[in-house]
Design a protein around this nucleic acid. Structure first.
Lengths: 341, 341
DNA sequence: TTGAAAGCGATACCAG
DNA sequence: CTGGTATCGCTTTCAA
């Protein structure tokens, strides 16, 4: 009597049971045509009986592919990136690829993630979201032959999905100017070196340009930098509104920060939009519910498009490393109005 | 002259370069103590020169571990599950495990996910969120020795993190009753067979019990079932409110649905809470901003706790398969008030 | 159409 | 301490 095979059945067990060689089982498994129907049926039957399923790890090693796509992104704690992830999930859901998620809140975690991934055998492709990969990283990906696509980030050597933050900043600011505001403050993001974010900077430049075009002087005391935390934006807004000559409108470089501004207004008992106008950026779900005027960027769509581009590369098409631009749109709701006269 | 090794360096390359055997390199790599310092240094130097990093796939096959944890969950399209994912990410972030995400919107995808995972070599542990795994699945996990933890789901054979939905439904309903409401409707979820959700049913039972305790007769026309889509909840609410004798309060079994109810009220020009009271369930982020009275459940915490439990099992502790219950809390905001007199 | 055997790139046992 | 080698489970030549 033979010893019972322990653990899940392996290809050799199937081969033995079907009375064929492992190569034949492998052929059946992978749909190679040159297998005699009778043999194929015997193999299939053996597979069924043993409830056999191939080990993906072993296939990975042999095939040198993993059928997984990795997404590395910071700030999963914020709604905007989450929305992008949903888009990615949607794009991948029709494909044979599964998703691995790397939330890289700190520089350390980001390094670790790349270190794990850029060797190229942990995933078949990588989506880098809202964080600019260092040049050396891009070079490693290239060296490893690992296809990468950027979402909400840019690098000359990689395909990317972006929006024109510069134009977005201008759009928001111009809206306020057209309403008659002259004292317009901005709350942006402190640039985090490791992530090398620049969207906040671009939006700020758009803001500056809109002001310049309207002949409004730039006031350094109206230009503040915070973080993505509501509470931080809130205290900055309180500071701004306590200035001897407070702004009549605040452009927050993200909806999350705009929520902090609204909170500050509530605290100071300032009526929005009668006494203070507020514009955000992103148009996350809450924006609708608080009636926030904001610059809408297609978050979900950016993730989905990024996923699609990666799938294309994965299917062998070589893409030019060009930036695909999605459209921004000003959504006027009820937090903006002409300034108090 | 030798041919240059192509592709990333492998352990043999390092061994050759350092003039040692692969076993020694492996020892250095894994910090086994019995290596002479001088040898170790030579190896380390070779590793540095070749910029060598071990192939995780090969390690996976050899070690029979992957250092990844899989989370399978439906409805990543809704805010509540996303919040749980955040908790999971948080729990894992201090660990050496990475996260693989399986969004199983359909029964088909769910089967596929389990099929991939329950063999046990694709991940080291699995978190099953908001979906009750079929018995056969649980059995397979056991057979494969794959540790599993449930979040917002229950199975007698697995550790789980849950809330008392029954009590939650009661809590919400009683609040309305105490305000003086007698005509209270409920919008729940149609049970999806494949996911075997029962939280909606439990909340409904809580609702029924609260009514019974207050001596209020149950009206079948006040008991409706919808989906998690805002628009669906909205039309159901419109139906309810168009009844000859409309309810003065609606308990929505989730915040998402409650948003639909609020929307309906707006459409019908009913003042909330003066003419209609609304209670939700979950307390997702938007709830704060719309001032929704709701039953708060610790979503983030559930994910984190689930992650922690799984990490414990992964570190060898065997856990009893018991359900850990997190507390619910009624959060009264501004969508509930006494009924119009 | 099929099977034997050589990888894939690590780990770890067993000698020395 | 160290090196050779079997092993993990599959794919894929190469011959038959």
């Amino acid at each position: 009597m033979e010893t019972l095979p322990s653990g899940p059945a392996k290809i050799a067990d199937v081969a033995a049971r079907a009375g064929v060689g492992v190569a034949t089982v492998s052929r059946v498994l992978n749909g190679h045509s040159n297998v005699k129907p009778a043999t194929r049926d015997r193999v299939l039957e053996a597979i069924r009986q043993l409830n056999y399923r191939p080990s993906s790890v072993a296939r990975n090693l042999s095939l040198r592919r993993t059928m997984v796509v990795a997404a590395v992104l910071p700030f999963l704690t914020n709604p905007a990136p989450v929305e992008r992830v949903r888009g990615i999930v949607a794009a991948l859901s029709g494909s044979p690829y599964d998703l691995m998620l790397f939330d890289v809140e700190t520089e350390e975690r980001q390094r670790r993630a790349f270190e794990l991934l850029d060797r190229g055998d942990r995933c078949d492709g990588i989506l880098i979201v809202s964080t600019l990969p260092p040049d050396v990283e891009v070079e490693r990906l290239r060296a490893a032959g690992l296809p990468g696509v950027l979402v909400d980030a840019f690098h000359p050597a990689l395909p990317s999905v972006v929006v024109d933050d510069y134009a977005g900043g201008e759009m928001a600011t111009r809206h306020l100017i057209e309403l008659g505001h002259r004292r317009i403050a901005l709350i942006g993001d402190k640039p985090v070196e490791s992530f090398r974010f620049d969207w906040s900077r671009d939006r700020t430049r758009g803001y500056e340009r809109a002001l310049a075009q309207a002949g409004i002087e730039l006031r350094p005391d109206y230009l503040r930098e915070g973080t993505q935390r509501v509470s931080v934006a809130r205290s900055i807004a309180i500071e701004l509104l306590s200035l001897p000559e407070p702004p009549t409108a605040i452009f927050a470089a993200s909806d999350t920060q705009a929520l902090g501004v609204l909170d500050a207004a509530r605290t100071l008992e300032l009526k929005v939009p009668e006494q203070l106008s507020v514009v955000g950026f992103d148009d996350v779900a809450v924006a609708t519910y608080v009636g926030l005027t904001t610059v809408r960027q297609p978050l979900f769509e950016s993730g989905r498009r990024g996923g699609e581009l990666l799938l294309q590369r994965l299917s062998g098409e070589l893409l030019e490393p060009r930036a695909e631009q999605l459209q921004l749109e000003l959504v006027v709701r009820s937090t903006t109005a002409p300034p108090p006269s």
